[in-house]
Structure formats: structure tokens, C-alpha cells
Design a protein around this nucleic acid. Structure first.
Length: 956
RNA sequence: GGGCACGUAGCUCAGCGGGAGAGCACUACCUUGACAUGGUAGGGGUCACAGGUUCGAUCCCUGUCGUGCCCA
């Protein structure tokens, strides 16, 4: 029994348990041993995460693909899991410690702190997994992985060690993006350039050998800077080589104000003559561009900030070297000042001495940490880097030669642009939560990289024994006793960038580096579904790692979907307060409605501006389906096991079979082409406007009539079409369809595992494979049913007949509305001058048409009766004798309007046909079409004129 | 500054070289035996603007204006 009302909340939890208990989503089900695998790896959400609209869209689309392919008989593995999210998670736990007024991270120490993080993960991590289940994600949850699982960690270590051995991972001292709040390096991608209203300070740098005077422009050079506080670390001034103003100053020196350091003026094209004063100060240790300029001109690198971005001058040998007497006092005074306080103080001091020329307001881009939100400091440190440039080459080639394809393909350009200009990837992070780098150092700083501590320590001790730094005896002792080597051999404190482990996700989750059966069966994966915002973070890096270690690209298709925005088009963000919570929408409208909305709006290459009213609309759609199924149930329409839809006799039944096969073709092709919105549109139109609006309405007389073969066939067809609908709709609305599948008939299997309506173009072998794959273990009776081939089953005769009925009913309804005939008034219909075909057809539809068009009777006549209103239906006249019922002037107005429309059509077509160039150049069929249109319009016009004539005589 | 999108009904969006579409909202009528979470009918658009290509442009090209995003 179907409940009277559709209550999504009721059924969704129940269906989720049903799937779970049946193990419906498990990969490698025995009966699919011989089926072709279909693999998707989930973009692992952060363990700290909770479901947002982006996740909802991303996982809905993946689920549609997975459910679709599962129904097509494939052995689907949708690999789920979560990401340890280094910085994010560490921050969450640190905040928790603070809120509970417990000792902080550093007080706890590394080991204790990590225990706390794991504890947090056990208690509250992975909330998002349950939220994904609420959305209906059909992942193989039994295979859930976490990027810091033992197995995945082993993969990470192995990759690191091998890349290091191959020279693709190395340690280097260069500028990094330093986050002075989180006290770690971050990658270029974790930096966001934010436009900031700041100032441009024009500073006077005195030229060596000239007496400085603010009034004498010859005694100084003006440099413009957005960061005056870094001047303490200046080691040069650059001007453009072609800049006439400064040509004779190149090669001279300036004396750095306040500091007294003697630094050169160099010519470098980096300096832009149009910007500022045309001269720039060069601070190689605190600016990426300056770093390059400095290298070109052999300028010193003087770091003047510490890791918290405060001035570090006292004891700073680089800074103090070669400074004149008295400079140490300034160092004492400024030491320890935070960078922005230092800026104020230095500017004030410069002004005091006449070194400040002016300050201009200036809007410019300032790098910010995407996690901490603070201004990023370019900072000179030792870090580990991946040679991304080398690794990118095969990754670019794989896309260029089509091994991997982006959908839509315009994202390939973005991918290439980035890959072609890729920078070394800084993978070390000064955090605790993550994969600790498998590198150990000896007392002289020599690095030993190995997969295990034993191996690294063994290598190291062997080396130092050989170098005679220690005796063999000491070496043996240190090898056996960890405490003995403390202080001699130390492990690298840093952990790897979270994205390092994510990059391995497509194979680490399958058991690599072990040679597992899953590796063989499910790699490479079929499709990756993700948002464009992580093409660089994730897609590109998976390509690099996959190609390097597996020798095969990790996926053949990368489907890039849109960003979900609020209804005004703004990006959703907590700070803007415009976040729509998918869980609220699920509570209010149901997961099915949300999923359908997202897929219906997922047009390629366009962002989704989501309005709740759309979700509401699709909830109505679910209700509509619900009630249509109740209708079938109330009329005893039951699924018959030996029913063959292609063998139906009734025209109406043949029509819905025809329409079903068309819908099947449309939906199938659209999903295959990743056009989710088209697939959703096709099934929506079919269910509502074909099945409900017409089929169910037209079928009522038969279902209420006498028992017989026709009624039996009709009942079976109603049920059959309903079942096909449930299948076609299942990938989009899994909950309601699974529920209706269960309650509308006694089924031996889940809808989630039922076979997809046979699609166009499926080879007999493939079809046989599907049946063979699904049947042995769990026989699903539906399989015994003949399948229809959407390409083959078409019935133009049925389509023509039902089309005529539809047009007739629509025309009468329209007229009645225009004439303001109340629904309670029944009218007669006279089919005048009807063709033999119409005379033959009409009786079959008389009951249905009478009901739907509110008619009392239908009759035939040679001519339209006096005073009747005439309609044109497929070239024939249908008359409604409405003498005394209608307002003649209203009818005249209606006919005049139609006449005008016909005239306009004729005029437009005539203009076209009169155009010689059109007739000469347009394709023949287009010209032919136009001629047919003209004829049709002329015929229409003739009948309208006739009707007007008759009206005139009737009125008088 | 470079790049990528986008400007279509009041709103949110499809579409597309040969007669402008959907959902929501709106108007009128209807509680008919699945459904008022419904039905029927209807109103509403110079397809941002200006050029060009074409027999024909909402669609292709160029430019302008506006919006969004990415990169520097």
C-alpha cells in the first residue's frame, strides 16, 4: 500500500538502511565478477568538514553516474573517504583546547597533541560521512579510507622516498610563502591575493659621495615602495636600463637611510618606469621579485624578520655585517617590533630625517593565507620541494593526446596554462598533524631518507662510522638503543602538505603499494567529478603522481562542474552570511528534491545560482510521481512477469511504450554525455507531461470500463511504464523511487540493482553481459521481461493518433477558456467533413475526449452546423454548436486574432520565398519546409474566413 | 594587465544559424473518481548595445557597456 502522502523524511532513512543492510553498494559483488568495473574516487572531504552546497552538487552528480552504471550492470566502485586536512584539523583541535582552557599544543608536546587529534577524529571527525549518506551517496562505505590510515601512510612514505631517490624531491633554501600566524610554509595555491587599500611610500635614498639634502634632487634617488619596513633588508636599488632619468646613476651606490648600508644601483628590466618613481628598492629576502633581481645582480639576502614577522635585528649577523658605527642602536630600538608597528616607526623616523618624500594612496594585491587570513610573508627558509616541472610533463601530455579528457573541454586550457608555468611545489609544512617527512639528519645536517627509521638510522650510522665520526662500537650501540642516538640523529619535524597524500588517492585507496586485486581491477578510474577550484590543488597532482607511479593516468574523464552560488550569483561564504545549508533543504524538501534541483541546474560551464523555490518545485514533482503511482495501485495495475511492451495491441498503450523508449533514449544519452540538466529535463517532461497529463488521463475510461483483454493489457502497461519511470528516475531521486519500487509490487531485488531500461546503441553482447552479470546469484524477475530497444521501438501510427487526440482536446479547452464557458457547461462536438481516418478513430476516444474536454456528445456531419464555432485540428474542422451559449462578438474577436496570426505567418513566409537569394542558397529542405508552412497557413486562413462568414450569417 | 565565462520572461535558468522555452511568481477559472504539494487556460521577452559575416543571426565574428571568476 502506498501511503496517502509523500513524506520524504519518512522514507529516506528507511531506504538508506535498506541499501546498507543489503550491501547494495559494495564493489565486487560476486554476481558481477565478470562485469566491467566502473570506478569513481570521491574527492575526499575534510574530516573537519560538514556538507555544503558544493559537496551536495559534487556528490549528487557522482551518485547519478554510479547508480546509472550500476543499473547498467557494471561492477561499480565508488571509493569514499576523508582527508586529514592538516592545517584545518590542527586548528580545530587547538581551538578546542583553548576553549576548554586546557594546555595548548606546545605545552602538550607533539606526541600528546597528536593523541588528542586522533581522539577528536574518533569522536567528531567524519560527520560529513553521515551527511553524504543522507544525500543518498551510494559509496561502498565498507571501503571507507582516511588519508592517515596505516595503508595510505605507507603509500605516502614510499612515494616520498622514491621521488627523493629519483631526485624529484629535494630540499632547498628559497623564498616561501610563510604564514606568520600558523608558523608554517604554505604552497602558492594556499595564498590568496586580496586587493587592499594601502599606500605607496616615496623614500629618498642618498647617493654615496653626495651631501644629502631634501632640497637637492641630485643628492638622492627616490624609490617607491608598498613595504617600507623591509627597507632594513634592502641590498640594492633597481632602475630600468632604458630609463634616461637614472642612466648615469647605474653602477653608483646609495647609503641606506637609518641603516647606513652601502648598496648598489643596478639596471634591471623588472623595474617599471611607469610605476612609482621608476626606481625600486630591492629586498631579496622579503619579496619574490626582488629575490630574482637579487640573484641576477649578486645582491645579498638579508632577512630582517623572524618567523612571527617581527623585526629580528639583534644578533642578526647578516644584518649587522659591514654596518657603520652606531647602527646597532637602531637595531636595539626596533628589535622585536611586529611588522606593521615597525612600518609606522620606520616611516616616522624616515620623515624625521627628511627621507620621506610623500605618501600616495595605493590599491594593490596583498597575499593572504587562505586558512589564517593573515598577510603572508615571503620568507627565506629550508623546505622540501617536488620538482613539479618535470612531473608535469607526462601529465600535460596525457591531456594533450586525449588519454584524459576534460568535460567541458575549455578547462583544458586552464590546466595547460598552469602546468606550463608550474613552480616547484613546496610540500613541507611546519605542523604536527600530517605525514611526518621520512628524513633523518646527522650531526652535520646530512640527510638520510628512507621508508623506515631502522633503515635511515642504519644508513646514517654506517655513513658516520665510515667517516670516522663515530666508532663502529658507538654505531652499534646507537642502532640498538634509541636513547643513545638522541641528539646525534634527529628526524625531520615537518609534515607533508595535505595535498601530497590526496594526490595518491586514486591508487592509495586501492591498496598500493601492495599488489592488490583491487589495484588491477579498479585502476585507472573512469571519471573524476570535481569543481574547478581544485584542478590545480588536486587534479593536476593526481595526474602527476598517477602517471609517475602507476604509469597510467588516474582517470579518463575529468568532469568539472559549476560552483553553487546564492541566488544573486555571489559565492557562498560564512562571512557574507549567504550560505544555504543543503541539510536544511533536505529537511524541508527531501534529499530527492534537492538532488533533482542540482542536476536539473547542472548545465555544463555555467555556475548554479540556487533559489529555494526551485527545490520546492521539484518536491512537487516527487509528489506528482507519488500520486501517479497511487493511481496505478488503486486501479489494480500490477507488473506482469510475461508482459511484452512491444506486443501491445491498444493504440494508447503502444503510444506510451513509444514515448517511454524515446525518454529512455534521451535520458541515457544525456547522462552518457554528462549533460545532467538535459537528462533531468527529459525525465521530468516524460513523467509529468506524457505519463501523468495524457497517458493516465486517457487511460481512465479503459480502466473504469468492463473487464477484458484490453483492460488487462492496459493495466499491465500502466504498471510497466511506471516501473520504467522508476528506473529512469532512480539515479536522480533514489529514495522515493526505491520506496515506490518496493511498495508497488512484490520485488525480489532492489531498484538500485535492477537493470536500466535498455538503451539505444547497446550491443547484444553488452546486453547479454548485463543479464549474465546480474542474474546468477540474485535473480531479478524483471530481467525475464523482454527489454525494448529504444532505437527500434517506435510507433508513428500510435503517435499520430494520440497526437490528434491531444490536439483536439487542447483546442477545445483553449476555446472554452477564451469563450468563458464554465466547466459545468457541457457542449457538443461535431466533426464536420471528417476523413475516413478520423471517423474510424473518433469512437475509440469518445469517452476520454468527452471527459477531458467537457463534452456531452460527439457526432459527425458533412458541414458545420449553423452558428457553431469552428476549430482547426490537424487540418480538419471540429465544430462546437454554441448558439445561445457564446458571445458572438467574442468569437469574432477570437477569429480575427487567429486570422491576423495566419496572415502574419503567410506574410513572413512570402517575404522569404520572394527572396531569390534565399531560394537559391538555402538548403532544399528548408525551402521545402517554408513552402509547406505557407500552404498550411493558407489552408488555416481559408477555414478561418469560412468560419467568420458562417458566424456572420448565424448572428443575423 | 593577461585569461575564462556570462548578460534570454518579474526571479532562477535552459536553448540555439531557419517560426523564442522551462520552473517559480502572476491573472482567470475549476475541489472532476492519483494528486489543490493539483488541474485547465492565459498574460509577459527589440534574446545587453553597436557593427560585421550570411539568403537568413538570440545563436558565428569584432567592438562597447555591465557582471562574475581565475592568474599576475
Amino acid at each position: 500500500m502506498i501511503e496517502k502522502n509523500y513524506q520524504p523524511a519518512d522514507i529516506e532513512g528507511r531506504m538508506a538502511r535498506l541499501w546498507e543492510n543489503a550491501g547494495a553498494f559494495k564493489a565486487g559483488r560476486p554476481e558481477r565478477r565478470d562485469a566491467t568495473p566502473f570506478t569513481i574516487v570521491i574527492p575526499p572531504p575534510n574530516v573537519t568538514g560538514s556538507l555544503h552546497m558544493g559537496h551536495a552538487l559534487n556528490n549528487t552528480l557522482q551518485d547519478i553516474l554510479c547508480r546509472f552504471e550500476r543499473m547498467r550492470g557494471r561492477d561499480v566502485l565508488w571509493q569514499p573517504g576523508t582527508d586529514h586536512a592538516g592545517i584545518a584539523t590542527q586548528m580545530v583541535v587547538e581551538r578546542q583546547l583553548m576553549e576548554r582552557q586546557e594546555p595548548g599544543r606546545r605545552d602538550l608536546g607533539r606526541e600528546k597533541f597528536l593523541e588528542r587529534v586522533w581522539q577528536w577524529k574518533a569522536e567528531s571527525g567524519g560527520i560529513i560521512v553521515n551527511q553524504l549518506k543522507r544525500l543518498g551517496a551510494s559509496c561502498d562505505w565498507s571501503r571507507e579510507r582516511f588519508t592517515m590510515d596505516e595503508g595510505l601512510s605507507r603509500a605516502v612514505v614510499k612515494v616520498f622516498v622514491e621521488l627523493h631517490r629519483q631526485g624529484l624531491i629535494y630540499k632547498d633554501k628559497r623564498l616561501v610563502n610563510w604564514d606568520p600566524k600558523l608558523l608554517t610554509a604554505i604552497s602558492d595555491l594556499e595564498v590568496q591575493q586580496i586587493e587592499v587599500k594601502g599606500s605607496l611610500w616615496y623614500l629618498r635614498y642618498p647617493i654615496e659621495g653626495r651631501t644629502f639634502s631634501p632640497d637637492d634632487p641630485k643628492s638622492f634617488i627616490v624609490v617607491a615602495t608598498t613595504r617600507p619596513e623591509t627597507m632594513l633588508g634592502d641590498t640594492g636599488v633597481a632602475v630600468h636600463p632604458d630609463d634616461e632619468r637614472y642612466r648615469d646613476l647605474v653602477g653608483k651606490h646609495v647609503i641606506l637611510p637609518l641603516v647606513g648600508r652601502r648598496i648598489p644601483i643596478v639596471a634591471d628590466e623588472y623595474s617599471d618606469p611607469e610605476k612609482g618613481s621608476g626606481a625600486v628598492k630591492i629586498t631579496p629576502a622579503h619579496d619574490f621579485n626582488d629575490f630574482d633581481v637579487g640573484r641576477r645582480h649578486n645582491l645579498r639576502q638579508i632577512s630582517v624578520l623572524d618567523k612571527e614577522a617581527s623585526l629580528a635585528l639583534v644578533g642578526n649577523e647578516d644584518y649587522l655585517r659591514e654596518l657603520p658605527e652606531g647602527s646597532a642602536e637602531l637595531a636595539e630600538e626596533l628589535n622585536g617590533l611586529e611588522r606593521f608597528a615597525a612600518r609606522k616607526k620606520i616611516v616616522a623616523r624616515m620623515e624625521d630625517f627628511g627621507f620621506l618624500e610623500r605618501i600616495e594612496p595605493n590599491t594593490h594585491m596583498v597575499p593572504h593565507g587562505d586558512r589564517s587570513g593573515v598577510v603572508i610573508e615571503p620568507y627565506l627558509t629550508d623546505q622540501w620541494y617536488v620538482d613539479a616541472k618535470t612531473m608535469a610533463k607526462p601529465a600535460v601530455a596525457a591531456v594533450r593526446n586525449g588519454t584524459t579528457t576534460f568535460v567541458p573541454e575549455n578547462w583544458e586550457k586552464t590546466y595547460f596554462d598552469w602546468m606550463d608555468n608550474i613552480q616547484p611545489w613546496c610540500v613541507s609544512r611546519q605542523l604536527w598533524w600530517g605525514h611526518q617527512i621520512p628524513a633523518w639528519y646527522g650531526p652535520d645536517g646530512k640527510v638520510f631518507v628512507a621508508e623506515t627509521e631502522e633503515e635511515a638510522v642504519g644508513n646514517a650510522l654506517g655513513y658516520y662510522v665510515e667517516q670516522e665520526v663515530i666508532t663502529p662500537e658507538q654505531g652499534r650501540e646507537m642502532a640498538l638503543d634509541r636513547n643513545k642516538r638522541t641528539g646525534f640523529i634527529t628526524r625531520d619535524e615537518d609534515v607533508l602538505d595535505t595535498w601530497f597524500s590526496s594526490a595518491l588517492w586514486p591508487f592509495s585507496t586501492l591498496g598500493w603499494p601492495d599488489d592488490t586485486p583491487e589495484m588491477k581491477r579498479y585502476y585507472p578510474t573512469d571519471v573524476l567529478v570535481t569543481g574547478f577550484d581544485i584542478i590545480f590543488f588536486w587534479v593536476a597532482r593526481m595526474m602527476m603522481m598517477g602517471l609517475h607511479f602507476m604509469k597510467e593516468a588516474p582517470f579518463s574523464i575529468v568532469y568539472i562542474h559549476a560552483l553553487v552560488r546564492d541566488e544573486k550569483g555571489a559565492k557562498m561564504s560564512k562571512s557574507k552570511g549567504n550560505v544555504i545549508d543543503p541539510l536544511h533543504l533536505i529537511d524541508e524538501y527531501g534529499a530527492d528534491a534537492l538532488r533533482f534541483t542540482l542536476s536539473a541546474m547542472a548545465a555544463q560551464g555555467r555556475d548554479i545560482k540556487l533559489a529555494a523555490s526551485r527545490v520546492d518545485g521539484y518536491r512537487s514533482f516527487a509528489t506528482k510521481l507519488w500520486n501517479a503511482c497511487r493511481f496505478a495501485e488503486m486501479n489494480a495495475c500490477a507488473t506482469l512477469s510475461d508482459f511484452d511492451p512491444t506486443k501491445t495491441n491498444q493504440t494508447l498503450n503502444r503510444w506510451i511504450v513509444h514515448e517511454t523508449s524515446r525518454a529512455t533514449r534521451e535520458v541515457t544519452k544525456a547522462i552518457e554525455g554528462y549533460r545532467f540538466n538535459e537528462a533531468a529535463g527529459a525525465i521530468y517532461r516524460f513523467v509529468w507531461h506524457a505519463y501523468c497529463d495524457w497517458y493516465v488521463e486517457l487511460v481512465k475510461p479503459a480502466l473504469m470500463g468492463e473487464e477484458g483483454d484490453g483492460k488487462t493489457e492496459t493495466r499491465a502497461t500502466v504498471a510497466w511504464a511506471r516501473d520504467e519511470i522508476l528506473k529512469l528516475l532512480h539515479p536522480f531521486m533514489p529514495f522515493i523511487t526505491e520506496e515506490l519500487w518496493a511498495v508497488t509490487a512484490k520485488r525480489d531485488g532492489l531498484l538500485a540493482l535492477a537493470p536500466w531500461p535498455r538503451k539505444a546503441g547497446l550491443s547484444p553482447e553488452q546486453a547479454a553481459m548485463i543479464v549474465a552479470a546480474v542474474s546468477p546469484i540474485e535473480p531479478v524477475p524483471v530481467l525475464a521481461l523482454p527489454v525494448i530497444d529504444a532505437d527500434e521501438f517506435s510507433d508513428p501510427a500510435a503517435e499520430a493518433e494520440i497526437g490528434w487526440v491531444v490536439d483536439l482536446v487542447t483546442a477545445i479547452r483553449s476555446l472554452r477558456a477564451e469563450m468563458n464557458i464554465p466547466p459545468a457547461t457541457l457542449t457538443s462536438l461535431v466533426l464536420s467533413g471528417a476523413s475516413a481516418e478520423t471517423r474510424e478513430r473518433a469512437p475509440r476516444w469518445s469517452d476520454a475526449v468527452k471527459r477531458m474536454a467537457r463534452l456531452s456528445d460527439i457526432s459527425f456531419a458533412d458541414k458545420s452546423p449553423e452558428g457553431s464555432v469552428q476549430l482547426l485540428v490537424r487540418g480538419e474542422v471540429a465544430s462546437l454548436p454554441l448558439k445561445g451559449v457564446i458571445d458572438f462578438s467574442a468569437e469574432k474577436a477570437r477569429l480575427d486574432k487567429e486570422l491576423a496570426k495566419a496572415d502574419a505567418d503567410i506574410k513572413r513566409v512570402d517575404a522569404k520565398l520572394a527572396n531569390e537569394k534565399f531560394v537559391a542558397n538555402a538548403p532544399e529542405e528548408v525551402v521545402e519546409e517554408e513552402k509547406e508552412k505557407r500552404e498550411a497557413a493558407m489552408a488555416r486562413k481559408a477555414k478561418i474566413l469560412e468560419a467568420l462568414e458562417r458566424l456572420k450569417s448565424a448572428a443575423t
